[in-house]
């Protein structure tokens, strides 16, 4: 059975501790970065729009810890976390948000299109659901080339109601592709509660059976559970067992995007979820298990320093140069459409 080849998570020993400290580091770096990004909006240094993952870090960090460096990751416009967890340098991400010359894509993509192919982070996609079929393509390619790489696609709860979700899940299941679909269900599709616009209670898990897949529901604010769940799904995919659909339930602390204060959410609900903040929760668990406080504090201090440095380097850089405007439309490096 393919399922038997799934790698079971290492639950004890120094390796597992290393993994969990890595998850903590990942969550903290993302949290500090996102808070800084928000501050920079308020200073009007980040233009356009941006979608922060504050509150949702456990999913990104937990899944990232279950992946190999050569696996492929596809994310949404709420993608800063995923980009950095696949190795995109924080300064380049920050500079991209600020439209600087040293941005991850030289200023051409912006917050919603972060891509870092060096880390096989294959892009952030700003059309809801569009990247699920694309992740299939990477998985199909891995299968065809016999590399045992896995593709992961993160998406929001809102994406489960768009056609591309259905097309992608059905194709992945029929072609038995090594792909893991991770629904980051933060309970709201933009401003509307997902339950008000969805025929089933669990937007992803309740639909899994339509594709012959088991329902997988996980507490998306528990990084350990996310890591375990992702490890099983990734192992299944790598071992030839086909796709998985994971619904990780979480909550964003802020609004949908920069323009949204999130006032449509009941105060009690917000308070309840703030109490379930994945980062303090994880820290407490690690401390309870005997990890020294100074180890975690060092991680926090390093992340804070990294964010400060990234901010300074991004702010000091020149704006994206207009000379790049007509570059990289085509593979010859230019934009020439005629002769």
């Amino acid at each position: 059975m393919a399922r038997d080849t799934a790698r079971e998570p290492v639950k004890t020993g120094p390796d597992y501790l290393e993994v969990r400290l890595g998850i903590y580091r990942g969550m903290v770096r993302v949290r500090y970065f996102e808070k800084r990004a928000y501050d920079l909006f308020l200073q009007n240094l980040v233009k356009g729009t941006s979608h922060l993952a504050i509150g949702q870090e456990a999913i990104a960090a937990g899944v990232a810890a279950a992946l190999r460096p050569d696996d492929y990751v596809f994310a949404t416009y709420r993608g800063h976390a995923h980009a950095m967890l696949r190795g995109a340098p924080m300064v380049a991400v920050m500079a991209e948000l600020l439209g600087r010359e040293n941005g991850l894509m030289g200023g051409k993509g912006g917050s919603m299109h972060l891509t870092y192919t060096e880390g096989n982070f294959m892009g952030s996609y700003a059309i809801v659901g569009a990247h699920l079929p694309i992740a299939n393509g990477a998985a199909w390619s891995a299968l065809y080339r016999g590399t045992d790489q896995v593709a992961v696609a993160f998406f929001g709860d809102g994406a489960t109601n768009i056609g591309a979700f259905h097309e992608a899940l059905n194709l992945a299941a029929t072609w038995k592709l090594p792909v893991v679909f991770v629904c980051e269900n933060n309970l709201y599709m933009e401003y509307t509660p997902i339950r008000k616009v969805t025929a089933v209670e669990r937007p992803a898990a309740d639909r899994a059976s339509a594709y012959g897949l088991p329902p997988v529901l996980v507490d998306g604010n528990d990084a350990d559970m996310v890591f375990e769940t992702a490890t099983r799904a990734v192992g299944l995919a790598r071992g030839g067992g086909g796709p998985s659909l994971i619904e990780a339930v979480t909550y964003r602390h802020g609004g949908h995007s920069r323009a949204d204060p999130g006032k449509y959410r009941p105060d009690a609900e917000v308070a309840e979820w703030l109490a379930k903040d994945p980062i303090p929760r994880y820290k407490e668990r690690l401390l309870d298990e005997g990890v020294a406080a100074e180890v975690l504090e060092r991680i926090e201090a390093e992340a804070a320093a990294e964010v400060d440095q990234a901010t300074e380097q991004a702010k000091a850089a020149a704006p994206a140069h207009p000379g790049g405007l007509e570059r990289e439309v085509f593979s010859d490096g230019g934009a020439t459409w005629r002769r």
């Binding site: 294959m122 079929p133 694309i134 393509g137 998985a139 065809y144 591309a164 097309e167 059905n170 194709l171």
Partner: peptide, 27 residues
């Protein structure tokens, strides 16, 4: 393996081609 029938899913078809093209194939 090289000539694959798909469902009636045009987004899935183009998506699969795109993801494959990004990762080393020429679909």
């Amino acid at each position: 393996r090289r000539v694959k029938d798909t469902p009636i899913s045009e987004q899935a078809i183009i998506g699969a081609a795109m993801g494959a093209a990004m990762t080393g194939l020429r679909p």
